[in-house]
Design a protein around this nucleic acid. Structure first.
Lengths: 338, 338
DNA sequence: TCTGATTCTGTGAGCGCTAACAGCTCGCCC
DNA sequence: GGGCGAGCTGTTAGCGCTCACAGAATCAGA
């Protein structure tokens, strides 16, 4: 029939088929009022018949706005960032936005800057940066661009829009639970100390110990891995007076568990243990782990809402949203041995 | 100085500043030959001075190609998909492509179709679908579009370009290792049976048992969660003659471990156990888990390379790439009890 | 000096869309 | 019947870029 290369149908093709002008097609597509119902239906039919898809590039060119949101995250294979990304993407899709990811190998200024620049090159309508350490935040200081920006787990001392989980209250709940079980004090295996999350958890733990008048043992600094938890656990397991440990996340707790069990110290018989995150496997540790759940879904939705409000208003904001964590009680806590 | 609204600099602004035509700027940007070195430098300087960024929308409009790749994945918070996404994104960024994600709540045809359509709406240059079950593959049958497409973990019986991990050989290696340790047979806790990965692991396990002339016990079907592993473990732990178990992933293995330990059956003293995936925590299970590592980095890179070859050649292909898994030996396997 | 190839640079059109405005069709009121 | 406003539809320009082509500059060889 038609020897020419098949070209995607354009708005004018739809217009021709429906017997209207391309502008009317545009109006139907953008839900403008002032289109006769009958015309609207005719246009819709033509769109369906041709399998027409509006060309986003053309629209973006003329409006100067894209329907793309960028996310910058470090290791998006970790449980936290991965969950957050999934939640954010789901919410964004509902709002008609696509989400472009920019993972970054490390959180230093240069890497984060580069990832942000890449998104800027794509002319995203807004950017989310998961910026859990100071250097990642500093990378956002010298942005020449005025794109709407939201940081997640970012620096509380900064003025960008920010969504965080209330680490302090989560840590206090965990510590209090251990204290209430009768332990005279609680040891803490922390995440990397440069992380704001770590700092928050340390602060909450310390505050709760102080409130209870308990001794504050030194922080055992680790990173987020089970391997570091294991090393911390080896230290802890040699100290007979340690009866309660609060680990800064569940994987750390798993490593601690392993080290404790290697030295024959039982959990919760000899030592009580609490984690953070509530990864899906935590209920199947031996013993099932009491932990603090972070609601990443809520974080994702809050992030989108902050971003959209900046996009639609056209003005930067420095709103904050805080999501409350929740203690999930399982079997890794008991009163201290007599 | 200038009261007008600041507008992003366009190519003509650069051209004016450099004293050349916009076309020459375009040539410099696209690394065309036939631009005098001196001119090139002048243009580069003007670009830097203005902080000019080419407008992707305009370029995409005229070339008909975008620099965006779409990925469709189910639950991208799971270890496998999340790792894969991170690896793929890294490789894509190096090649100058941005990656847009489209998570999908379930892998049925309609959901996958919708996610693909969303990417098509964005006019992505290529699509990756992580399609581990038949329904997800069927969603790709009736695509009217000719976008380059690669499936990961997809249906081996289909003709789309496909990247997979060799599940059969991984499962054989695990089973053989257990057999070689002296076990008379090996039980298998499988993933959801509709998954190709599950089928491959079952096939490899069965093949190896048959090769060894060992009895083939019934498959214990589960899903990928620790909870399901726990339930399977409860069954297994009641059968005193079970001495070796191959779980279809590490989280399943964790659940099995938990159930076994609850009934006082020790691993590896009474029962030997092997998992699949090698999640970072597997080395810190109690006992450290012997498992089969999947190289998601390699999968991500292979996926990108298959996709790019289709994009640059302009022709669909049905190439295959298979990544070999690797047995990681730790402490969860021992000879059967006497 | 001229010719012709070679290298470099500029001009014009048009990608598909939206925004602004112009125009046409009604029905209603004076 | 003329005028008018409201509702609907069409026309035109232009977003920032690349492609095709035309034109200028340079250089080698005759």
């Amino acid at each position: 029939m038609d020897g020419r290369t098949a070209r995607d149908p354009a708005m004018t093709d739809v217009a021709r088929l429906a017997g209207v002008s391309h502008q009317t097609v545009s109006r139907v597509l953008n839900d403008h009022p002032n289109v006769r119902e009958q015309t609207r239906l005719r246009v819709r039919a033509a769109i369906a018949e041709l399998g027409y898809r509006p060309n986003r590039a053309a629209r973006a060119l003329v409006t100067g706005r894209s329907q793309l949101l960028g996310v910058v995250a470090q290791n998006s294979a970790l449980y936290g960032p991965a969950s957050l990304l999934a939640a954010f993407e789901g919410a964004a899709a509902e709002a008609g936005f696509a989400v472009s990811v920019g993972s970054v190998g490390s959180l230093d200024r240069a890497s984060v800057s580069a990832a942000v620049e890449r998104h800027l090159d794509q002319r995203v309508a807004g950017i989310v940066v998961i910026a859990p350490v100071a250097s990642a935040n500093e990378a956002l200081d010298h942005l020449h661009s005025a794109v709407p920006l939201v940081t997640v787990d970012g620096d509380p001392a900064r003025s960008t829009a920010l969504v965080t989980v209330d680490q302090v209250s989560g840590a206090r709940a965990a510590t209090r639970f251990l204290l209430d079980a009768g332990h005279s004090t609680v040891w803490h295996v922390s995440g990397p100390t440069q992380w704001f999350d770590s700092a928050g958890r340390i602060a909450g733990w310390r505050a709760e110990l102080e409130r209870a008048g308990a001794e504050v043992p030194p922080v055992i600094a680790a990173d987020w891995t089970a391997a570091a938890g294991y090393r911390a656990g080896q230290v802890l397991s040699r100290m007979p007076d340690v009866t309660a440990v609060f680990a800064a996340n569940d994987h750390l707790a798993l490593g601690v568990l392993r080290a404790l069990s290697e030295r024959g110290r039982s959990v919760p018989g000899d030592v009580s243990l609490i984690g953070f995150d509530d990864v899906p496997e935590a209920a199947y540790f031996t013993p099932p782990l009491t932990t603090v759940r972070q609601d990443f879904d809520a974080v994702g939705r809050a992030t989108l809402s902050l971003l959209l409000s900046q996009i639609t208003s056209g003005e930067p904001s420095s709103q904050r949203r805080t999501v409350a964590p929740e203690l999930v009680v399982r079997d890794s806590v008991a009163p201290p041995p007599a």
